[in-house]
Design a protein around this nucleic acid. Structure first.
Lengths: 346, 346
DNA sequence: ATGAAAGCGCTAACAT
DNA sequence: ATGTTAGCGCTTTCAT
């Protein structure tokens, strides 16, 4: 219709070759009136890239994305990816029946340009090698510790734990408890270290899965044991919500009997009763960094390793390897304590 | 490696032509050892179908999928779609900045086989024609009323509203209020009709958007007006959560001062305080019906209209047109009242 | 039962 | 600045 070859249409659309302004206008005109849309499938077949980025998230045991933190992250990442000109699709996995690799393969078969991966709550020990084998650039978000050989992004859980515990201590509580993952978990260590450093009596530490049910079960145990600390740090909003329910049922008043601070700062924390004081996850920063790292890894695939990446955002893990392998980058961002009613100081 | 042409590999994989058992085995063997994966992009280019289904959901004004009902629906639909052998991807839209059609186009450019569309809260008046123009089979879920020319699935909101109101009336409340969309909204009409039918005094009807904030604002107004009915029907869990917060702040006890029943039955309703009695959405049935209708529309595209579809599930809208156009089908499923603490009868 | 060959809609050399 | 051509990895006639 514009009287040109298909190549020229491609040139006008992608700017990979010069096109006379007049021709370009004719082409665009034709595109408009014809309602032409480039077939991304064909484009992907030819170029190996589909202009899409995927997010792969865990679904937990429940038949839902029960964690508002994930949905907030997903929405934010989607927005940022689109702003960078990528389509953004999401799929989820239930660890019992399927794996991250299954989902990633599906996306790979459709030529996605990269994937953001959220690991499962349950310390999912996937091998970096298996994911790498799929051949799609990827970045793991919501990461606790750096993973050798992988590009990762996470919140500074340790520092968040220190902030939460310190806040409680600052307001006079001499005994502070903990609910959440225990052991090799930064928030747990942060609570321990802070109590020790401030010479506080560490209250009970109750192991709990990062779910509402986990928090409920743990707090119920606490109530039955009759050992209620005057202050409590819950390692996630979901856990805190479960704790709140158990306390309500037992007639334990928050914050009067027990002051509560949690972690995540999702919107659910705002509409609970009482509203939760919580360390807000740096969602936007993490999403942005993840995308940046993903896209950097992408371009690094084709070009020779030249300069180290401009270490812009986040506190780079000062890992000597980061220079050699662009993929091995770990960015960490601090959270921010949001004061609401549950800590009793607001 | 198997010593056969690429055509035979295709035959083995897709069964579109007979393959000798021995050859098939050699091919599969080669596929295994080579780790070969068919390129869905090429397949889609050739066949026009990528074996993927999309879900397009609204994101609301907040930077998140704030409605747990949607995330539950998404997870369920994803599961069911995979069981039927389709990959399932999800994308969302923020009505202020983008449209369903934008997202659908992106998916169409990548040859999805069909799309499930969740309309926006805000009575989003999209034209069926614009969506149809994209050329991808689609089904609208979470639909209030049938849409001429479209295939739709929804919950029986009217009946749910009747059940909720009746439950409150059954337990002695002679005056019942309402919070939610008003006017042309089945739950509102159901509340009105039921109050009238039972000779009850309809309490205040407060218009509210289907968000936590909407419920909070409406209930705050109610408190300020000093007109608290002994019982209240909130048209969604989100609204009820907002109501709960306003009541807590004002020292209004639920269910003692006001008995509350809501609609959706999402998990958030279970961990609020008090836990919400709610009409549970028939999520699984809706997701299954939506997929069935989508896939039926799909095959109807190619084949001549023959027999009417086996009207299996749901109460078919007895619309004479449904026979002529397979796409025009509206399935409605009843919800189920789940008793918890907020209604005070449990 | 299997192979040869064409073509899906693009992009990228390579001409001109 | 634009056209010609080849080819991305499949599926599908059409032969054999």
């Amino acid at each position: 219709m514009a009287g040109v070859s298909d190549a020229v249409v491609s040139y006008t659309l992608n700017g990979r070759a010069p096109v006379a302004p007049a021709t370009a206008e004719r082409v665009r005109e034709a595109i408009r009136t014809l309602g032409y849309r480039p077939n991304h499938t064909a484009r992907a077949l030819k170029s190996g890239s589909s202009g899409a980025i995927a997010l792969i998230a865990p679904r937990g045991e429940d038949p839902a994305f029960t964690n508002p933190f994930f949905t907030e992250f997903a929405a934010t990442a989607e927005d940022l990816a689109r702003r960078r000109g990528f389509a953004f699709y999401m799929a989820s996995y239930a660890l019992d029946r399927e794996t991250v690799v299954d989902r990633l393969q599906e996306f790979a078969d459709r030529q996605v340009d990269g994937a953001l991966i959220i690991p499962d709550d349950r310390r999912d020990r996937r091998s970096v090698a298996a994911i790498d084998a799929v051949g799609v650039p990827w970045v793991q978000v919501d990461t606790v510790d750096p993973i050798p050989g992988a590009s990762t992004v996470g919140a500074d859980l340790y520092r968040g734990g220190v902030d939460a515990t310190t806040h409680l201590a600052d307001h006079g509580h001499r005994r502070i408890g903990y609910v959440g993952h225990v052991g090799d978990e930064p928030r747990h260590r942060a609570w321990q270290d802070t109590c020790r450093r401030l010479g506080l009596d560490p209250g009970p530490a109750l192991p709990a899965r990062f779910t509402r049910e986990g928090g409920y079960a743990a707090a119920s145990r606490m109530v039955r044991a009759g050992d209620l600390p005057p202050a409590l740090f819950a390692a996630s909003d979901l856990v805190a919500l479960g704790v709140l329910r158990a306390f309500h049922e037992a007639g334990v008043a928050v914050p009067d009997d027990v002051a509560l601070v949690s972690f995540d700062g999702s919107w659910e924390a705002e509409y609970s009763w009482p509203a939760l004081t919580s360390v807000r996850q740096p969602i936007e920063e993490m999403a942005d960094a993840a995308l940046t790292q993903l896209l950097a890894a992408d371009s690094a695939d084709s070009s020779e390793p030249t300069d180290p990446p401009d270490a812009a955002d986040g506190l780079e893990a000062s890992d000597g390897l980061a220079q050699r392998h662009r993929r091995e980058r770990h960015s960490v961002f601090p959270g921010r304590l949001v004061l609401r009613a549950s800590c009793g100081t607001h």
